[in-house]
């Protein structure tokens, strides 16, 4: 009995020390890991949407709680003003959810650009919703009052040839993002009012 207790104690002590050490390392790297993940997964898309902004939208982000989930809002500064925000929403594609980042000008309520972040569509076909610049350019400058649909559904967006379902998924993701934005707009404007950028360049 005493032997078994000793064995048990040894493993427990080892695990406890290791757990403690790891939680220490974890808490000291946490912020940086989050930043790196955003930078590599959403960074390239975000950069294109916020072309010409004077800050780093990844660092200048804030979170709003919606129910149990937290939504991340990226802020872009133009002419010294926090004028644009970007947020992500999902739409159902051919093989799974398509994540789309939508940039919106908070003054004019127009889309400044969209971009696909994550997807699992077929390479060369559905995946072109991410890579084809003319497809995503169609959304640019359109007001957020409308609902986006592909032309096959009686809408205004030209679908990618052979990838109607993926294109429809992107439209739905954009609609979801706009709905989310409309819901959070008062909160976002409140936060932007006293917004202080950490990475502002003149």
């Amino acid at each position: 009995m005493r032997d078994i207790l000793k064995l048990f104690l040894a493993v427990t002590i080892f695990s406890a020390v290791s757990g403690g050490l790891l939680s220490l390392v974890r808490s000291s790297t946490r912020a940086r890991i989050e930043y790196q993940q955003l930078k590599f997964v959403k960074g390239p898309t975000l950069k294109e949407i916020m072309k010409g902004c004077q800050n780093d939208p990844i660092t200048d982000r804030f979170k709003i709680k919606v129910g149990k989930k937290e939504e991340t809002i990226f802020v872009g500064i133009f002419n010294g003003q926090p004028r644009a925000i970007a947020l992500e929403a999902f739409g159902k594609g051919f093989h799974g959810p398509i994540g789309v980042l939508v940039g919106i000008d908070v003054k004019t309520n127009k889309i400044i650009g969209i971009g696909v972040t994550t997807h699992s569509e077929t390479p060369g076909v559905g995946a072109r919703v991410k890579t084809d610049p003319t497809f995503r350019a169609q959304f640019k400058g359109l007001p957020i009052t409308q609902t986006f649909k592909v032309k096959a559904d009686g809408g205004q967006i030209d679908a990618i040839t052979g990838a109607t379902i993926s294109s429809r998924g992107v439209c739905n993701a954009v609609n979801n993002a706009i709905a989310l934005y409309k819901k959070l707009r008062p909160e976002i404007l409140k936060r932007l009012k006293n917004f202080k950028s950490k990475t502002l360049r003149s």
């Binding site: 790891l22 790297t29 940086r32 790196q36 993940q37 590599f40």
Partner: peptide, 11 residues
């Protein structure tokens, strides 16, 4: 530890 550090610095 390596996993966390790599994630933070050489993603």
């Amino acid at each position: 530890i390596v996993e966390l550090v790599m994630q933070a610095f050489t993603y």
